[in-house]
Amino acid sequence: MTASTASPARFRPGSTAKVGLLTVIASEIFFFATALSAYFFLRLEHPEWSLPAQTPTGLLIPSLNTLLLLASALVIRQAQRAIAADRTKMAQMALGLTFVLGLIFIGGQVFDFSQSGLKPDDAAFGGIFMALIAFHAFHVLAGMVYLGITFARALLGDFSANHHTSITLCAWFWYFVVAVWLTLFGALYLV
């Protein structure tokens, strides 16, 4: 039997799911990359657009939202460290808090846009701006769904130091969502 020639890494528990999620994230990165390219392409064709983007509240809400998401990333990192040390209660709380922070983020986005007066059928600038924010928001919501399910499972005691792949995956997806926001914030509001 030549089991010794098998790569042990392939069979670590949860490794298949991790590789799977990384592939999903790779695909989604390209989705945002192409959408952002569309934004820059339109921008290049329209030097007359007044940029960077401004909503009536200025950069305040987007900046606050950015800090919020960064904080949520730190919180979910705590969840990962907690469960790795078998501190299930701490992990539960961290997951729950991340969810709440995500909710506030979505709320902030919705509020900001309702104040902005931007409509989808404005000229292309309004459209691409809102589209990018909306695409990102959908990914935040997807992350929150996953967070919600993982939180519920954590409450039910599904996870332990040896067995918490879902929390890892949830966290990785959340980092992706935060990273995309940082990129969008920079590209849309700062450049």
Binding site: S37, A38, F41, L42, P120, D122, A124, F125, G127, I128
Partner: peptide
């Protein structure tokens, strides 16, 4: 929805589709 990504008269681009 009525956006104008590819509608030239409203700031969109005909070539954007082709690149994407």
């Amino acid at each position: 929805v009525g956006t104008h990504f590819y509608n030239v008269s409203a700031g969109g681009s005909a070539l954007l589709w082709q690149h994407l």
